[in-house]
């Protein structure tokens, strides 16, 4: 079950999903890290797309 209040964001270029509940521990981003808490210069780890080109995934 997804953690309440945690959302998913999707890269417009490669469709990779950033799941706030899971974080990206292998990249040093702890589970539970909100998308807004990622640094402004964070880019998609799979394709390098800027953070600004991620969209909130509808439930």
């Amino acid at each position: 079950m997804p953690e309440p209040g945690r959302r998913k964001w999707q890269c417009r270029t490669c469709s990779e999903i950033y799941d706030e509940a899971a974080g990206l521990p292998e990249y040093g981003i702890a589970p539970g890290t909100r998308f807004e808490e990622l640094p402004d210069d964070w880019v998609c780890p799979m394709c390098g797309t800027p953070k600004s080109d991620f969209d909130l995934v509808a439930d």
Partner: peptide, 20 residues
């Protein structure tokens, strides 16, 4: 390996459409 930073599917705007 974690993360595995390979670019076998490419990188950037031309990253492989079929990677998933």
């Amino acid at each position: 390996r974690a993360p595995n930073r390979h670019i076998g599917f490419g990188y950037g705007g031309h990253v492989c459409l079929g990677q998933h």
